[in-house]
Simulated assay, not measured.
Amino acid sequence: MLTEDEFFIPQLVKHAGGKKVLWSFVFSGTQIVLTTHQLMDQSQFRKKVTMKIHRFPPRRAPVNFESWIRNLMRNCVEQKNAGP
């Protein structure tokens, strides 16, 4: 399992304009694409990330996870009409 220091997301990207909003980020050279539900639900988030990078991201206390995700969303780059 990765530690919080090892699992750093430098930039979250919001892909809007399609049928649904998608979110993506790059970790260790691998792009990970998530739905809003997968991004906001720690269990779904960890499952999707693990499937892509074959390592578990850190488990956070629910309030810490929510705060961390909201901060990423607040500082995201938005791309309209662009898919990941």
Rank of each mutant, 00 (worst) to 15 (best):
M1N: 13
L2T: 06
T3E: 05
D5N: 05
D5W: 01
F7V: 09
F7T: 11
I9K: 04
P10S: 15
Q11E: 12
L12R: 06
V13Q: 04
A16R: 06
G18D: 10
K19D: 14
K20C: 03
L22W: 01
W23N: 14
W23D: 13
S24D: 07
F25Y: 02
S28V: 04
G29A: 05
L34M: 11
T35E: 02
Q38K: 13
Q38M: 07
L39T: 10
D41Y: 00
D41C: 09
Q42A: 04
Q42S: 07
Q44W: 00
R46C: 12
K47V: 02
K47A: 06
K47P: 01
K48G: 03
K48D: 04
V49C: 10
T50S: 13
K52T: 03
H54V: 14
R55Q: 15
F56Y: 03
F56H: 08
F56D: 15
R60D: 02
P62F: 10
N64H: 10
F65K: 08
F65C: 12
S67D: 09
W68T: 10
I69C: 05
R70N: 09
N71V: 05
L72P: 07
R74I: 06
R74K: 13
N75K: 08
V77E: 13
E78M: 12
Q79H: 09
A82C: 12
P84K: 02
